[in-house]
Amino acid sequence: MEVRTIKVFTTVDNINLHTQVVDMSMTYGQQFGPTYLDGADVTKIKPHNSHEGKTFYVLPNDDTLRVEAFEYYHTTDPSFLGRYMSALNHTKKWKYPQVNGLTSIKWADNNCYLATALLTLQQIELKFNPPALQDAYYRARAGEAANFCALILAYCNKTVGELGDVRETMSYLFQHANLDSCKRVLNVVCKTCGQQQTTLKGVEAVMYMGTLSYEQFKKGVQIPCTCGKQATKYLVQQESPFVMMSAPPAQYELKHGTFTCASEYTGNYQCGHYKHITSKETLYCIDGALLTKSSEYKGPITDVFYKENSYTTTIK
C-alpha cells in the first residue's frame, strides 16, 4: 500500500517557510505537534488534498525554529505562539472599519479597549522592536488589523473576551517599542525636605499616572512627601515624541487643539466601556464603527496623549 502524501510549508514567522512532505494517514499533531492554519487549530486533523502548498504555523520545537521565533517575536515564552494563534482565530472574524481616516474595530468580545489602543497607536510616533509587531502594525494602518490585535493580546497575556485596560495595554506595548531616546527629568520640591531631581528613561519617561493635564504637570502637581507634608512635583525636561497622561476616570474637559487623542471610560472596574476622542479640525468621538463630532467635550476621561518633541522648564 502506497503512502499518500502532500507537500506543505511549516513556519513560526510566515517569513521562513520549511518544506514538509506530510503523510495523509496521520494527523498534523502526530507529525508536527500543535499546528495552526489561519489561526485555526488543526492539530487533530489529517492532511487533505486542499492543504497542498498551504502554510501551517507550528510551535518552535527545534533550534532553527526557536531562533526564527525569537528573532521575529522577541520572546522565548513557549506558550506565546499558541496564544497568538488562538487569538487570531477570533480577531480574523472582527470587522476593521476605516473611521475618520483611522483603522478602528467594530465592537465584539469586549474589544473596546483594543480599538482605543489601536486608534491611539496610529496617532503617536512609535516604532516597535519585534519585527512581528512592526509588520502587523503597518498592515493594521492599511486596514488589516487582525494579526496586530492578536499579537497585542498575546504580548499582554490576554484572551479574547476578557476586559482590558488601555493604560495597561499601552504599557505592555511600550515595553516592546523603541523608547531608548526618551528621557524625563522631574523635580520634587518640599518646604521641609528641599528639592530632589529624578531622571527617568524609556517607558517611565512617557507615562504618568495622577493627572490628565500635561500643562498642569509642567506647572506642578501636589504629591505627598515622605515627611508627610505636601510637596510639588513638576516637569523639568521632556525628550520624547509623545507623552501619555493618565488618571482614574473623572469628568474632564478636553479643549480642541490642546491634545492629540484621549480615552474615555464609562462604567466601573468590573464592567465598563471605552471610547476614543481625537482632536482634528474639530473633536471626534470614535466608538467602534461609530463616529460623532463636537466642538467641545466633557466626560469621564482616563488617558490623554500629547505630541511632544523637546521641553525644558522655565521655572527657576
Rank of each mutant, 00 (worst) to 15 (best):
E2N: 10
V3M: 14
T5G: 12
I6E: 02
V8W: 00
T11W: 00
V12G: 10
D13A: 02
N14L: 07
N16R: 07
N16M: 01
L17D: 07
H18M: 08
T19P: 14
V21C: 13
V21W: 15
V22A: 15
M24T: 10
M24D: 06
T27Y: 15
Y28E: 06
Q30S: 10
F32A: 02
G33C: 00
G33A: 00
P34L: 08
T35W: 00
L37K: 12
D38M: 11
A40P: 04
D41A: 09
D41P: 10
V42W: 14
V42Y: 13
K44A: 12
K44F: 14
N49E: 09
S50N: 11
S50R: 15
K54P: 00
F56Q: 00
Y57N: 07
Y57D: 00
L59V: 12
P60A: 06
P60R: 04
N61C: 14
D62E: 11
T64H: 12
R66G: 09
V67R: 14
E68L: 08
A69H: 11
F70N: 10
Y73W: 02
T75H: 04
T76I: 07
D77F: 01
P78I: 11
F80H: 02
L81W: 08
R83M: 03
Y84D: 00
A87Y: 03
H90T: 14
T91Q: 01
K92Q: 11
K92V: 12
K95F: 13
Y96T: 02
Y96H: 02
P97V: 09
V99R: 03
N100H: 06
G101S: 06
T103F: 10
T103S: 04
I105S: 05
W107E: 14
W107F: 15
W107G: 15
W107P: 15
A108H: 07
C112V: 02
L114K: 01
L114R: 02
A115S: 09
A115I: 01
T116I: 07
L118C: 02
L118Q: 03
L119N: 04
T120I: 13
L121T: 09
Q122H: 02
I124D: 01
E125D: 11
E125M: 09
K127M: 08
K127T: 10
F128V: 01
P130N: 06
A132M: 06
L133F: 00
L133R: 00
Q134D: 05
D135E: 12
A136F: 04
Y138S: 13
Y138T: 12
A140T: 07
A140G: 01
A146N: 00
F148Q: 00
F148D: 01
A150H: 06
L151M: 07
L151Q: 01
I152T: 15
I152D: 01
L153C: 04
A154G: 03
Y155Q: 05
C156F: 01
N157R: 06
T159F: 07
E162S: 11
S171T: 14
Y172I: 12
F174G: 03
Q175D: 13
Q175P: 02
D180M: 04
C182I: 07
R184F: 13
R184I: 10
V185D: 04
V185M: 07
L186G: 02
N187I: 08
N187R: 12
N187D: 06
V189E: 10
V189W: 11
C190W: 00
T192I: 12
T192W: 10
G194A: 06
G194M: 02
T198E: 11
T199A: 07
L200E: 14
K201P: 04
V203Y: 12
V203C: 09
A205F: 01
M207Q: 15
Y208N: 09
Y208L: 08
M209K: 14
M209C: 11
M209S: 11
G210R: 07
T211L: 12
Y214F: 08
E215Q: 06
F217G: 06
V221F: 11
I223R: 05
P224R: 13
C225K: 02
T226W: 07
C227Q: 02
K229F: 07
Q230Y: 15
T232Y: 11
K233G: 11
L235A: 04
L235Y: 02
V236K: 07
Q238K: 05
E239M: 09
E239C: 11
S240L: 03
V243A: 07
V243I: 08
M245S: 05
P248A: 14
P249I: 05
P249T: 09
E253F: 07
K255E: 15
K255C: 12
H256P: 15
H256R: 14
F259Q: 04
F259R: 06
A262Y: 00
S263C: 11
T266R: 15
G267N: 10
N268L: 07
N268W: 14
N268Y: 07
H273K: 08
K275F: 00
K275C: 05
K275G: 03
I277C: 06
T278Y: 13
K280L: 13
K280A: 10
E281P: 02
T282M: 12
Y284V: 12
I286N: 04
G288K: 00
A289K: 05
L290K: 15
L291F: 10
L291V: 15
T292V: 10
K293M: 09
S294C: 12
S294R: 09
E296S: 13
E296D: 13
Y297G: 06
K298V: 11
G299K: 00
G299H: 07
I301E: 04
F305W: 14
Y306L: 04
E308M: 12
S310R: 12
T312H: 13
T312K: 13
T313A: 15
